[in-house]
């Protein structure tokens, strides 16, 4: 009796083991619930993107559910740390904003316990190219005008940026290095308040992203001098790229997804493929454009390569930060 029971039990174990092995090949398993960490408050730009993609994933994998978990705090650091420490079963992944994830982990003083190796890049989804804007009645019509003025008056032109050492600040350092000029950065924690200072005539320019500026351009209050991308923005086709003005500076904020290191490779490819299909859907493209963003899909490997190239680009710029 006991023997037979043991045999049945062993058999059952084998079956269970076999089923698990088979399932490891297929990702995602049926009716699983995944957590998607978004290191920003609900309603923020990153959160809106995150929720667009999770709703797309629910359509792509019927029966599976994707729960956005908002973990704001300390820039992105609280959320990114949580992602690095998350379970490695492939059912917890997170929204990653490059290059902020990189600049945070590069700043030794912040003591971030994660770096490039803590994450498996999944795919990039949206992109918002960097841009620089002045007041609409400013004398500067082009990036060249602006830089010529900075050459004449070193450190006199003030440029509003978000935090010190953040992407926008590093963009300004990039322009300084490329053109041999010096600006005075003015730090705002909030791009809205920086725009308020620009429109009130307190600062000369604001370095931000196309998405920060579209509304105020439409309102006729500001003028964008240049977009830091390899092609013109669909939102402001009349604005020249920095490259057209002779400055090969490419910068912007991207929103992609990553798994914690140690998660199954199959999860990364399956999610990457699903996001790729989503990115080709005209309805999705329109919804992303409604948020003032460009859809820029990079698959699993492309996103990893982009991540690596950003690290190289930013290492050179952070070296120039005041210590």
């Amino acid at each position: 009796m006991t023997k037979r029971f043991a045999a049945v039990l062993a058999g059952a174990c084998l079956i269970v083991a076999g089923v698990t092995a088979a399932q490891a090949q297929t990702y995602p398993e049926a009716n699983k619930r995944s957590s998607v960490i978004v290191a920003a408050t609900a309603g923020s730009g990153a959160d809106i993107t995150g929720r667009l993609v999770t709703s797309g994933l629910e359509a792509a994998f019927p029966g599976n559910s994707y729960q956005v978990v908002n973990l704001p705090g300390a820039g992105l650091q609280v959320g990114m740390q949580a992602l690095a420490d998350a379970p490695k079963d492939g059912y917890t992944f997170g929204l990653t904003s490059l290059p902020t994830v990189i600049t945070l982990s590069m700043d030794a003083a912040r003591g971030a316990q994660f770096n490039r190796d803590s994450f498996i890049p999944v795919a990039n989804f949206a992109y918002d190219p960097g841009a620089i804007a002045v007041q609409v009645d400013s004398p500067y019509q082009t990036l060249a005008d602006f830089i010529a003025a900075a050459k004449e008056k070193p450190e006199e032109l003030t440029v509003g940026v978000t935090g010190p050492g953040g992407r926008e600040h590093l963009d300004v350092i990039g322009i300084e290095q490329a053109a041999g000029v010096k600006f005075t950065p003015v730090f705002h924690n909030d791009s809205g308040l920086a725009l308020n200072d620009l429109m009130g005539g307190n600062i000369t320019a604001v370095q931000g992203s196309v998405g920060d500026f579209t509304a105020q351009v439409a309102n006729g209050r500001i003028r964008v001098l240049a977009v830091f991308n390899d092609k013109r923005s669909t939102f402001m086709p009349d604005v020249a790229t920095a490259e057209e003005s002779g400055f090969k500076i490419y910068s912007g904020t991207s929103r992609g997804f990553a798994l914690p290191a140690g998660a199954p490779e199959a999860a990364a490819t399956a999610l990457s493929d699903a996001i790729g299909k989503m990115a080709a859907d005209p309805e999705m493209i329109k919804r992303v454009q409604d948020q003032g963003l460009e859809l820029k899909y990079m698959d699993h490997t492309q996103y990893g390569a982009y991540w690596d190239s950003e690290i190289v680009r930013l290492t050179a710029l952070t070296a120039a930060l005041p210590k």
């Binding site: 705090g73 820039g75 740390q81 003083a109 003591g111 010190p164 924690n189």
Partner: peptide, 20 residues
């Protein structure tokens, strides 16, 4: 929190949530 113009952490005692 973080110094508004230098970004150096101040009195955060190594606690990540205090960086902001």
């Amino acid at each position: 929190g973080s110094d508004p113009t230098m970004g150096m952490p101040r009195f955060t005692f190594g606690l990540t949530p205090l960086l902001g």
